[in-house]
Design a binder for these strands. Structure first.
Lengths: 270, 270
DNA sequence: ACTGTAGTTCACACATACCGAACAACTATG
DNA sequence: CATAGTTGTTCGGTATGTGTGAACTACAGT
């Protein structure tokens, strides 16, 4: 509850700051980092050496890059729960059947992270064709995305409040809901209709719908979504109805599959 | 060249040690970590709090887990070079056409990391069906894997020596090559025949073949491989010949595609 | 050769990471 | 319900190791 800011380990924070800076710049040189972060070159030097030794960074021609060791850890996190598996598989089916973008994302630390993302009609030879810059591992906010709002709608209000306190409601487009009351009201609507929408609130030209995937004990696993360019992806019932039905079926599928897994587990215990 | 171990930042190392321990245990509690790493509880406490704040770890019911922030960084590393894309796509095609496991891995820090891995004949509903415990983000060694040997074969000898110095040649099965001279001789063979083999050297019951993907300037991008259970995946020319041809074509495809990308780049520059 | 830029090494001083003990919050147990 | 045994959190003191800046090396460009 209370972020008591216990006693942050500043040295570790510095290392992380360096990593973040490298990621933001898609590779950086020592002096570049030293200047950007206002640290002595020798300091940055030691951090870099340590992180390279650990495989978290790579040095290539004077430039430092994010290392694949992060991927090792990241995939570990991505596969942490077996329940993720049916949801990730469903993303492929959704993308194929709707020919639009499908996404499964989970909430962590007040943000959403995409665990699986597939572009339905995209030319696989040119991944840049997708309408958003989303991909597996992408972090996005909860208040301005369909999966985010879907997950929020399934959380108790005090948890929602706490997330909004921590992360705020910054606007990314004109449509972004930046008022807390308005958002809470919309979450009520989401609960009623069973799915959340994103009408160009995250990115101009991109719309999507999402529904929460919940477990038997009532907790939320994440949000399943489909979306596409605004010119063809409608949110109203008229043409959007089909998508909503597809999404509903998909969520039901996933939840049924998860239930099946639980039963198998129970059986094996006996 | 010289791993002068400049002046390692011990605090950062401690944080990383904690992360590794958590990963190894698939989640751990504070006291567990404190005992395992021989650190004061308060120390671990501060590190954990810092890492959670940064999103690198998550706390859930007293257990600490690897956070999805790692995935964000990891995917960044995975997509760092555009040249990876055609290789990753080829993995899907290889898996489909051979009905065996296909893999594209690159070398970093003296290890191989899988950037794409697909099980050809696996039931997608049960990923555990694969014969190895490999997956995207998996780290494995260079001396006892086909992609590793393929990449080594394309490196100058002094780089090979340096990698072997750093990482050694530990045995994982009876077949693992643990003698440096033997390995160097085998690399010579690899260069001659154009592909490397792994005859249950990494894991009992698993065989594979791999070839290096090289760029125009002669540098190695990574290794493309196909493999399967030993009872059906043969390495000799008789039945393995087909696989070798398929692999060769696949590598040629990827290299051609990369060349095409380079030309497009040149064009756009003009 | 020379100037400038980038990275590495080193000794010192101050900040701080680590510890330990005491405290708080929960569970289990009689 | 009290008690004992967990596990996690707080806090002050101290030894440690981080961060610094200056001096040094290595290169690239002119």
């Amino acid at each position: 509850m209370n972020d008591t800011q216990a006693r942050p380990v500043k040295t570790t924070q510095t290392s992380i700051r360096i990593g973040r800076a490298i990621q933001r710049r898609d590779g950086a040189t020592l002096t570049e980092l030293s200047e950007a972060l206002d640290l002595a070159k020798s300091t940055v030097h030691n951090h870099l050496a340590t992180l390279v030794e650990e495989g978290l960074l790579v040095e290539e021609g004077g430039q430092y890059y994010i290392g694949l060791r992060f991927l090792e850890f990241g995939e570990h996190a991505r596969n942490r729960r077996e329940h993720y598996t049916p949801a990730k598989l469903q993303v492929y089916r959704l993308a194929e059947s709707t020919n639009e973008e499908a996404n499964f994302a989970v909430a962590e630390n007040g943000y959403m992270y995409s665990l699986e993302y597939v572009m339905g009609d995209a030319n696989p030879n040119n991944p840049a064709v997708g309408s958003t810059f989303l991909s597996v591992g992408s972090k996005f906010r909860m208040h301005n995305s369909a999966p985010g709002k879907a997950v929020l709608s399934a959380l108790p209000t005090h948890r929602v409040e706490s997330i909004l306190d921590r992360r705020g409601l910054p606007a990314t487009t004109e449509n972004t809901i930046t008022d807390r009351e308005t958002l809470l009201e919309e979450l009520e609507t989401v609960r009623e209709q069973g799915y959340a929408t994103n009408d160009e609130e995250l990115e101009v030209g991109f719309r999507s719908i999402a529904a929460p995937v919940t477990l038997d004990d009532g907790t939320v696993l994440g949000g399943l979504s489909i979306g596409g360019p605004a010119y063809r992806f409608e949110l109203d019932d008229a043409s959007g109805g089909r998508s909503v039905d597809t999404l509903r079926k998909a969520v039901a599928d996933v939840e049924r599959e998860i239930g099946r897994m639980a039963n198998v587990d129970d059986d094996s215990k006996e």
